[in-house]
Nucleic acid binder design. Structure first.
Length: 890
RNA sequence: GGACGUUUAGCUCAGUUGGUUAGAGCGUUCGAUUCACAUUCGAAAGGUCGCAGGUUCGAAUCCUGCAACGUCCACCA
């Protein structure tokens, strides 16, 4: 292509698809394919990230886009650094969420009760069909984002191999007594007809009617409740042990007739009861409240269920109420109490109602026979674990989860989330893993009368499989190692080096659901952590800070933004201007700004290609060895060195936004606005222009892969940028040149400002007088043409004091400078000038280089010196300690 | 009720262990324009870093208290 034909603006839409195809077919995304592209990957250390598998419930949103942008940045960075990178792609069947979604769709299509009408098999087919479509969309979206993962290695939480892992782990846990069947109070969703784990229910603020009453006229204690309909199931009244009002009743059992039903109520004392709330006495309903169930366990109270799974009153509620809905029963009870004279008062109180996470329907708590993972039960470890326990030692799952993070084997970033994690782990209750839905891993348990067998295959005639499926997080918990082949010995053996994975990058909103469960599963099954770092990114919100949701209509769709602004711009807008773990507001405006930047980079490159046409990169590198000539050369190379060092460090520390800002400031501020402009004045800069550009492009690649790869191909490097080495610095920092260049740069800026202030014609060249010291004078002379061209100056007179008769000698346009570093008395000189030249304000030179630390100390009072000395000593000790640790690690 | 987070320019946000004159982008104002890029260039204005105390030679940064907003957890019988 003729370089003159390069389009003026970068056209992302025209090149992205082709570039992606080329990457993919070259094998750059395949950890084994890398070796063919470059032998340096043969003996390379692995670097592995498993993709948090997107739910097959629809399409990807900007939160996913952010996840992909950050993970791809890491993967591309480490790939260029020479690590054998493996980004494991896959999707999640998201059991309940997907089934609910499909059910809603089917209802829209006219089905009244899709599950009943279609039956298990046909219904599941519908779900699978939907999940497949969703998967296809997700894959194409990931590709559009430029994500460098190898879809030939795609995994699915519900495929054959993952099913093997699930069954294997279930069996292990069953044998270790960690998975048990139990009749316990669980969260029940009457609409979706399934149990829910504690993490799948939410609280919603509502108003409720608090009713104060007595069970019957003769009952000695008044109680309050917002759930009168559950009171048929009361088996106790709990009071605080020190409550004088009720002390005399403690231990007694009363018979009562509650709205026609005989109940037996024991008065128990328990410190959880708040004597100040209501009447200070609490009606205990063990079957319909987890708190009451725990209370009942302590006091060995019987459990009476009165609400069924259909959300209606059961026979236990008595003849007049059986079959009524909760609402109907509640009203009727209050009426009955009133008629019987047992109602004391009614008041409205705020209440948080338990609702399902994926719906608006209230969740009931009722006792059911379900499968649970016991998190507090000690078991014998199957292998040495986390370097703390040996095979055969006893521990609980909770112990493992705590220790993995406590011991810093897993680092959670930002650190503040560690506290939240510990709090969650400490308060964790047994995990109900069985769901009464069809879409998911069916529980590998077979029943034959009282006999139970665990396995995927039927043990024989007369055995029936548990119809329930597993909580989706059970299979996602295995994700880090089930995707690497476990439990298949050969596949797992081949991938062993990738586990523990290096980083788990995800939104903080699934810290508990997923991250914690992966830690549980990995430490239990393998005795090792699933990942070293957990990097939590914030949520993407709209420009007003609201969550993006379809009902609000504020959803920005990545697939609409990409054709409009280019993938690189979308990615930058998700990575820049954000801090780890902090929510981010995103507007289209911001994406547009980054589109402008991709275009800037394009035009910088285009300019270099056009003006230095004919120079190959090799020639440039050869020329380069002759070394820099001018101050601006020394300066840009020193700056490049700084940027290279800092960007590399910042990315390894997950400070992507800062790394990007540094790069942008250098690219736009230093390189384009100054060095490129100077190159038009001082010639013979081709070599250095190429040199800087050929290092800028690789550094930008992880942030904006498409435009950089495109330019890279145009500048004639036969190797793809995606597998090119991360640039290492060939220079050292040259502080002296940086300081000197700053003097020139500030001088030019100051002159520009003064010109504007004095209303000087922008195009005109002027004569100026400068009062400067010797060093500055030398610098100005050495960079004469640069200063003159960029500041539009015809002649500069350098003087060390104000000449006699001046400025009348020079008519018209005058600029005056005072240099602090010259040692002149600023105040005196300023006054002098103001007196002599009326109407012109002298400016105080700002070109004086900032004091170095040494100079600062020498000028500072003694105490400051002391303080800084102490700090220096501290730093030295830290360095020593680090060195010691390094040696011991070696 | 418990915990955590946020509060910095008109807006969106950076600010790593306390350190020289607190930064960026957008927006605003003024100016430029065939010469890589109007998706551009130059310049300016704009901040008592939420409030009140404290520690320190020195605080946006550390400590205490308060306020507003937000998030999570628990619970309201």
């Amino acid at each position: 292509m003729d370089l003159k034909d390069l389009p003026k603006a970068y056209d992302a839409a025209a090149v992205e698809a082709g570039i992606f195809k080329q990457w993919e077919s070259s094998g750059a995304f395949d950890p084994d394919g890398l070796e063919k592209l470059d032998p340096r990957y043969k003996e390379a250390d692995p670097y592995c990230i498993v993709l948090p598998p997107p739910n097959r419930t629809g399409t990807l949103h900007l939160g996913h886009a952010k996840m992909l942008a950050v993970e791809d940045l890491l993967i591309r960075f480490y790939r260029m650094l020479g690590r054998k990178t493996y980004w494991v792609p896959g999707t999640d069947h998201a059991a309940l969420a997907t089934q609910v979604k499909v059910e809603q769709l089917l209802i829209k299509e006219g089905h009244k009760d899709p599950r009943k009408e279609l039956g298990r098999e046909k219904f599941l087919e519908k779900v699978k069909e939907f999940a497949q479509q969703s998967r296809d969309t997700i894959v194409s979206q990931c590709k559009a984002m430029g994500s460098s993962m190898d879809w030939k290695r795609e995994k699915y939480t519900l495929d054959e191999e993952r099913n093997r892992a699930v069954n294997e782990v279930f069996k292990m846990m069953f044998e270790d007594g960690l998975i048990e069947r139990g009749y316990r109070v669980v969260n029940w969703d009457p609409v979706f007809q399934t149990t829910l784990s504690d993490d799948e229910v939410e609280h919603k603020e509502t108003q409720a009617e608090l009713v104060t009453f007595k069970y019957d006229k003769d009952f000695p204690i008044e109680i309050s409740t917002t759930r009168p309909e559950t009171k048929f199931g009361d088996t106790a009244v709990a009071v605080h042990p020190d409550d004088e009002r009720y002390k005399k009743f403690i231990g007694q059992t009363f018979k009562a007739n509650f709205c026609g039903k005989e109940i037996s109520v024991k008065v128990v004392a328990d410190p959880v009861v708040d004597p100040a709330f209501g009447t200070g006495a609490l009606g205990v309903t063990p079957a319909h409240s987890m708190i009451d169930a725990e209370l009942a366990e302590r006091h060995q109270l019987p459990m009476v269920q009165v609400i069924g799974t259909d959300g209606k009153m059961m026979a236990e509620a008595g003849a007049g109420f059986s079959g009524l809905t909760i609402k109907e029963a509640r009203q009727k009870i209050v009426e009955t109490l009133e008629v019987n004279g047992c109602l004391i008062k009614k008041e409205t109180v705020p209440q948080s109602l338990l609702i399902a996470q994926r719906g608006e329907s209230p969740v009931e708590q009722l006792p059911l026979r379900q499968w649970f993972v016991r998190v507090n039960k000690p078991f014998k470890l199957r292998q040495d674990t986390l370097g703390r326990w040996q095979k055969g030692d006893e521990a609980t799952l909770k112990d493992l989860m705590s220790f993995a993070v406590e011991s810093k084997q897993i680092r959670i970033l930002p650190e503040s989330f560690e506290k939240i994690y510990f709090h969650w782990v400490n308060n964790l209750r047994d995990w109900c893993i069985s769901r009464q839905i069809w879409f998911g891993h069916q529980i590998p348990v077979w029943y034959n009368g009282e006999k139970i067998e665990v396995g995927n295959e039927s043990p024989g005639e007369g055995w029936e499989r548990d119809p329930d499926t597993l909580d989706t997080w059970f299979s996602s918990g295995l994700w880090t190692f089930s995707t690497l082949g476990w439990p298949d010995k050969k596949a797992w053996g081949n991938n062993r080096g990738y586990h523990p994975t290096n980083v788990l990058e995800t939104g903080y909103d699934i810290l508990f659901f997923w991250v914690a469960r992966m830690i549980l599963m990995s430490t239990y099954v393998l005795g090792e952590i699933p990942f070293r770092d957990v990097y939590l990114h914030g949520l993407v919100r709209d420009e007003k800070g609201r969550k993006m949701s379809k009902s609000l209509g504020n959803v920005l769709d990545p697939l609409e933004l990409i054709p409009k602004y280019g993938t690189d711009a979308v990615r930058l807008s998700l990575v820049m201007g954000t801090a780890p773990g902090m929510d981010q507001k995103l507007s289209e405006e911001k994406i547009k700004d980054f589109r402008n930047f991709t275009n800037k980079l394009w035009n910088i490159s285009r300019y270099i290609m056009m003006t230095t046409a004919g120079v190959t990169k090799e020639q440039a590198d050869e020329q380069w060895t002759k070394g820099p000539i001018t101050l601006s050369d020394k300066w840009i190379l020193s700056r490049l060195h700084e940027v290279q060092t800092n960007v590399t460090q910042l990315i390894t520390e997950y400070q992507f936004s800062q790394a990007g800002e540094l790069l942008r400031d250098f690219t736009w501020g230093d390189f384009a606005d100054w060095y490129l402009e100077i190159s038009k004045i001082e010639k013979n800069k081709d070599a250095i222009l190429w040199h800087v550009l050929s290092r800028l492009l690789p550094m930008w690649h992880p942030f904006m892969p498409f435009v950089t790869e495109h330019i890279w191909s145009l500048i004639g490097d036969p190797r793809q940028l995606v597998v090119s080495p991360w640039p290492s610095s060939a220079h050292i920092r040259d502080e002296e040149s940086e300081k000197e260049f700053a003097v020139i740069r500030n001088l030019i800026t100051d002159i520009r400002r003064l010109r504007a202030e004095q209303g000087i014609e922008p195009a005109s060249f002027v004569k100026i007088n400068l009062i400067v010291d010797k060093d500055t004078a030398r610098l100005i002379k050495e960079n004469d043409s640069v200063v003159k061209q960029l500041a539009r100056i015809e002649t500069i007179d350098l003087v060390d004091s104000i000449p006699e008769g001046w400025p009348t000698a020079v008519s018209g346009k005058i600029v005056i400078g005072l240099n602090v570093a010259s040692g002149l008395d600023i105040g005196k000189e300023k006054a002098k000038i103001e007196k002599e030249i009326s109407g012109l304000k002298p400016y105080v030179e700002s070109t004086t280089a900032k004091l170095s630390d040494k100079e600062f100390i020498s000028k500072a009072p003694e105490k400051v010196v002391q303080g800084m000395q102490e700090k220096l000593d501290e730093a030295k000790m830290k360095i020593e300690a680090l060195e010691k640790r390094l040696i011991s690690l070696k």
